[in-house]
Simulated assay, not measured.
Amino acid sequence: MEETIAGTEAVQIPTQRGESLLETAVRYAEDRHWDVFSGTWLEAVDGVQRCSCGDTACAAPGAHPARDDWATQASGSATVVRRMWSTRPTASILLPTGRTFDALSVAESAGFLALARMERMELDLGPVTSTPDGRMYFFVLPGAGAKVPELVRGLGWAPGSLDLAALGEGGYVAAPPTRVGSRGAVQWACRPTLANRWLPDVEELISALAYACGRDR
């Protein structure tokens, strides 16, 4: 079952307890129309969880692309998705950015501060993930990467002075319940719901995110 951070979005798309990675990936494709692709996976080696890539110093064990042509493999077809996980049932679930959504990446501390501010401002949010390495990803409409630098300047910050980045074409995010080595699993801070099917534009969230990143420096 997907993990959700306690105290966050309560309205949930129904899921089945014990749902497999394959079933979850299919739901992302069918319910959200997201392209998905299978990444690396974790393997037990001498009692230690290692990444299937074989690199003992892997920065994201079990949660990165398994092949260089991953962008061409990503698909929103349930049939194709089932084929991916039928051969690699424990593979991570990865979502390419720059297609149906971009993702704004901030430190987790700034992300939760921004979420609280957005709630007070009654902003409409899309899905938001929280990763074991302390990052949060806010899903927004595609095209955010080209807009962020100028938007940050307009708010009085120099581009690059804030820990705020946009992932667009050529990027990807790991989706719940993907596990990252021994650090834990990716979780939903705000999970996909029927209410947030329509994503916000980056302009709607940038002020709260920039403010939070500035406070978090």
Rank of each mutant, 00 (worst) to 15 (best):
E2T: 12
T4P: 00
I5R: 14
G7R: 11
V11H: 15
V11L: 15
Q12H: 15
E19D: 07
L21P: 05
A25I: 03
A25P: 06
A29V: 07
W34E: 14
V36S: 05
V36N: 00
F37H: 10
T40Q: 07
T40H: 08
V45W: 08
G47Y: 09
Q49N: 12
S52C: 03
C53H: 04
T56W: 03
T56P: 00
T56M: 09
C58D: 05
A60V: 03
G62L: 09
G62H: 10
A63K: 03
A63C: 07
R67K: 02
D68W: 06
T72W: 03
G76N: 15
S77Y: 10
T79W: 07
V80P: 02
V80D: 14
R82S: 11
R83V: 15
M84K: 10
R88H: 10
R88W: 04
T90F: 08
A91T: 08
L94Q: 05
L95C: 14
L95P: 01
T97N: 06
R99Q: 10
T100K: 09
T100Y: 01
A103T: 12
L104E: 07
S105A: 12
V106Q: 01
V106R: 04
A107R: 14
A107H: 13
E108H: 12
S109F: 08
S109V: 08
F112L: 02
E119K: 15
R120P: 02
E122G: 06
G126M: 05
V128Y: 03
G134W: 10
R135I: 07
F138C: 09
F139G: 04
V140I: 06
G145I: 08
A146P: 00
P149D: 00
P149V: 03
E150M: 06
V152R: 03
G154E: 04
G156Y: 01
P159G: 11
L162I: 09
D163W: 04
L164D: 00
G171V: 00
Y172E: 11
A175I: 15
P176F: 09
P177L: 13
A185M: 13
P192E: 01
N196A: 05
R197T: 12
R197W: 06
W198V: 07
P200H: 06
L205E: 05
I206Y: 11
S207Y: 10
Y211W: 13
A212P: 00
G214Q: 13
R217F: 13
